[in-house]
Design a protein around this nucleic acid. Structure first.
Lengths: 218, 218
DNA sequence: CGTTCCATTGAGATGTGTCAATTCAAGTGG
DNA sequence: CCACTTGAATTGACACATCTCAATGGAACG
C-alpha cells in the first residue's frame, strides 16, 4: 500500500488484508454481478477486468499489474460490475471493504487515499474515452505500450523489453480494435523500426518515436 | 441531495452548501487545472464538462442536469481535471469539499453516498468506453437521447419531447463523432420515423424503436 | 504427429471523416 | 423594418481507416 501512515495504522491495515494464494492462469478473482465484499491488490502476475456484453463478446476494462487495486467499481451497487481474471499465474490479496471503510473513517490519510484511488480511476477512464473517440489504431496501441512500459518502470522492471501477458484479442477488446488491426499495426511499427515484435515479446526500439506516435508527448 | 439522513445531519449538510447565483450561458463553473476546493450541484439549466486536448479541440466528458454533481474528478490531484461551463442560463451550488469530507467522516451514510457517487461515475465512464469502442454512430446517438430522456423523466419532465441544450458540435465531441455524422443520423432517424428533429427540438416518436437501435434493450 | 489456439497477411467492403457548398436562425446596425 | 453578418445545421461527393472474410503460418500441448 503506497501511502505514508503511522506504524500503528499500517499494522491495522495489515491486519485486515488477507494473505493471497497463487491463482492459475484464467482464474477469476471475482465475477460480474457477484455481491461486492472486497477489493483486491495484485501482488504478482497480471489481471484483466472485463464485462460481458449482450452479444457474448467482452469489453475489456483494464489490465492490472502488481501494486494495483481492482474491484473499486463495486462500491456503488454493492455488486461487482465487471469480472476479473488472471492473465497468467498470479497472487492476489483480498481486502474486505467493510474493514477498509471502517478503518478509513478512523484514519483520515487512508480515507484520502481511497478517494484518490477512485478519482484516479475516473480520470484514467476519461483518458481512455478520449483515446477511443479520437485516436487512430497506431496511437491507441502506442498508448497502451507506453502505459505498460511506465508501469514496468515503476516496478523496477525494463521499460523497453517485456512480454505481453494478454492476447491480441484482449488488446483489441481493450482498445476497441480487431485482432487483425493490432497485428497490422505491430507489423507496421516494426517496419518503421519503432518496435521489435516477436509474438508477445515486445522491444521498444525507438521510445521517442513511440511517444510521438501516441500523440501524448507534452 | 438524494440521501436519507437524520434531520441534524441534513442541517449540517445544508449549512456547508453555499447558495448559488445564476450563471449566464457559457460561463465557467470551474476550469481545468484550477486547484480543487469544491464540488458543485446543478440546480437548474445544464452544464458540460470537457477537457482541452493538445491540438486545441475539446473532449466533452459529460452533460449534467439539475440534481447532478460535478467536480468529483478533482479529488485525486487536488486539481480540476476538466472544465465545466454552462450550456444555458443555470444555477449551480458550491459545496466545499473540505467541509464535505469532514462531515462525511462523522456521518457514515454521507461517506457511503460519496463513495457511491464516485463509483457510479466510474461505471458510467466504463459504459461510455464500451459505447465508443463498439457502437455505431446511430447506436451512440440513440444512447445519448435515451439517457437524456431517462434523466428528464426522473425530473418529472417529458421523456419524449425536449430541447437539446448542447450544440451538434458538443454532441459530436461527446460521442466521438463529427457534426456531419450527427446531422446525417438525425435525418436518417427522422426518415425512419423514430424521431422528429427540428434543430434542437427533439421528439421521440418511436421509443421502442430507439431502444432497439441503441442495442441496450434488456 | 496431429490438434488447437493464436497470430499474421491479403483482398475487398463499409462506415465515418473530410472538404465544400447551401440553408437556416438569430442577432446587429443602418 | 430591412439588409447584413455570423454561427449552427444540413446535405452531397469523395477519401480513407478500419472491419470483415478468408487463407496461411506458427507455437504449444497432448
Amino acid at each position: 500500500m503506497p501511502i505514508a501512515l503511522e506504524h500503528d495504522d499500517i499494522q491495522q491495515l495489515d491486519d485486515i488484508i488477507k494473505r493471497g494464494r497463487p491463482l492459475q492462469q484464467s482464474n477469476h478473482v471475482y465475477r460480474e454481478a457477484e455481491s461486492f465484499h472486497s477489493v483486491y491488490a495484485v501482488r504478482s502476475g497480471s489481471v484483466k477486468a472485463y464485462r460481458a456484453m449482450g452479444d457474448g463478446r467482452e469489453q475489456v476494462i483494464g489490465f492490472y499489474f502488481p501494486g494495483e487495486i481492482i474491484g473499486l467499481d463495486g462500491i456503488s451497487s454493492n455488486t461487482h460490475n465487471a469480472s476479473a481474471k488472471t492473465l497468467e499465474t498470479a497472487v492476489v490479496c483480498e481486502i474486505p471493504f467493510s474493514s477498509l471503510k471502517g478503518l478509513s473513517s478512523i484514519v483520515p490519510p487512508l480515507q484520502r487515499h481511497l478517494f484518490r484511488l477512485m478519482s484516479r480511476g475516473i480520470i484514467e477512464d476519461q483518458q481512455r474515452i478520449t483515446l477511443l473517440s479520437r485516436n487512430s489504431a497506431a496511437e491507441r496501441i502506442a498508448f497502451l505500450l507506453l502505459s505498460i512500459s511506465a508501469r514496468n518502470i515503476s516496478r523496477k522492471l525494463s521499460g523497453t523489453r517485456f512480454r505481453l501477458s494478454m492476447s491480441r484479442l484482449d488488446i483489441g477488446n481493450y482498445l476497441g480494435l480487431t485482432v487483425e488491426t493490432i497485428s497490422r499495426v505491430f507489423s507496421q511499427l516494426q517496419k518503421m523500426a519503432v518496435l521489435e515484435v516477436d509474438n508477445r515479446e515486445i522491444a521498444i526500439v525507438d521510445m521517442l518515436g513511440l511517444r510521438k506516435l501516441s500523440n501524448l508527448v507534452d
